[in-house]
Computed example of a mutant assay.
Amino acid sequence: MDVFLESGYREQYNNCYDESLKLFQCDYEEQYLHTTYGKTYVLQFGDRTKPPLVLLHGMTMSSVMWYPNVKAWTEHYAVYAIDIIGDIGKSMASEVILQKEEAVDWLKETVDQLGLKRFLLAGHSIGGYISLRFSLAYQDRVEKLALFAPAAAFHRLHWRFFYYSFPGLLFQTEKWVDRAFRSLSAEGLPFAPGYREFILAGYHHALPRLRLYPLRIEPEELVTLKVPVLLMIGELEVIYPAQQAIEYAKQYVPNIQCILVQGANHTFTIERADLVNERTLAFLLNN
């Protein structure tokens, strides 16, 4: 069930993963947690006595995508970055996740094993969708929720997302993977030296086992959400119309703060890291 078809490719990827952790420029601890759905890999940054902040990454980007954000956030929080089970990363699935209920159950098992009773939660893209679904199911567990361009959730996915993204997963060549990530970026390939190579290593001979397809969440569910929410979407978002998604969220989510990031696309958490770090902390720290 591993995303890598041969153990040799898994070893190469893990070595590349370990090397990329230098990008965080801060100390970390790592662990594997055994869940019903397989082994879940967790990175922990900062002082464990501080309030916990849980992070879920975007599809195929792994927890390494948070390298421009974590150092700023650990000034106030103990940060737990979780590799989503079944996606390209260090987590290793034993079951294929198809339904939202399974994704929520996997996350609950993971945070339970971490001993996190109540925590702050943030997610990007598919990680944002799972975070929102978890928050709807377990509102007593989530203190605040930060969403960065959550997949679907507030608008169905646009055809352009599939047009640019699927060839990268299908052909797995440098050309097609670069094409996919350029479509998600407002600045070409904005990644730090080493991260692009890490992404390419992830696509090489890998097949994601996460088969969860995110759908727009209906108004009757969203109106029940009592958790304070920060929603940030890039003005040039390719996976759906940014303004329409924001208007939908404003209409139905009771306690939400929305930010349209000017001149940004899907990977703005990396490209506009200073803004994301500042606005996220302002939201999380505001009582």
Rank of each mutant, 00 (worst) to 15 (best):
L132H: 03
Y163D: 05
Y28F: 15
K71E: 10
K117E: 15
G127W: 00
G89V: 01
I246W: 00
S183M: 08
Y32F: 15
R48C: 06
L230D: 05
Y80Q: 00
D47T: 12
G127M: 00
L225D: 05
W73H: 02
L170V: 14
R160P: 05
H57F: 10
V64A: 06
F134D: 00
G115C: 06
A93G: 03
I130Y: 02
R48S: 12
K117A: 07
H205A: 04
A192M: 09
F119T: 08
Q257C: 09
V79I: 08
M65W: 01
G123R: 03
A146C: 11
T267E: 12
T269Q: 03
Q12F: 14
G123A: 04
E95N: 08
A180P: 12
P254E: 06
S94R: 13
M92I: 14
L281E: 05
S94W: 08
T110Q: 00
H266I: 12
S63A: 09
K100W: 03
Y80I: 00
K39M: 13
L147Q: 11
P150A: 08
R209P: 00
V42F: 07
V64K: 03
A153I: 03
F162L: 13
K175L: 07
H204R: 15
H57N: 12
G168L: 13
L281C: 01
K250M: 08
P241E: 09
F161G: 04
Q262G: 07
E101R: 12
A72Y: 13
Q99D: 15
P254F: 02
S7T: 13
I126F: 02
Y9L: 07
N277W: 02
D178G: 04
L53P: 01
D18T: 14
P228G: 06
R10G: 03
A180Q: 14
L184P: 04
I239N: 03
G86E: 00
A103F: 01
F268A: 01
K108P: 01
R211F: 10
I126Y: 02
V64S: 06
L207V: 13
E187V: 08
R179E: 11
D87P: 00
K226G: 05
F45E: 01
G263V: 07
I199C: 09
L200G: 10
F4P: 05
E30G: 04
I233E: 02
D274V: 11
A78D: 02
V3D: 07
E271D: 04
V227Q: 06
Y77N: 01
E29W: 07
R211H: 11
S185I: 12
T269E: 01
A273P: 08
E174L: 04
I130F: 00
I88A: 02
Y164W: 15
H76E: 11
V42I: 15
W159Y: 15
Y67R: 09
P219D: 09
E218D: 09
S131H: 13
L157T: 15
E235A: 09
P241W: 05
D27G: 13
A264G: 10
L23G: 09
Y164L: 08
E75W: 06
G202I: 05
Y252H: 15
T267W: 07
E143M: 04
C16F: 11
E75Y: 06
G263H: 14
L170D: 09
Q257T: 15
F191L: 07
Q244D: 12
F161Q: 08
N69H: 05
P190H: 09
L56M: 12
I256R: 02
L5V: 15
D87Y: 00
C26D: 12
S131N: 13
Y32G: 04
V229K: 04
L56F: 03
I246V: 14
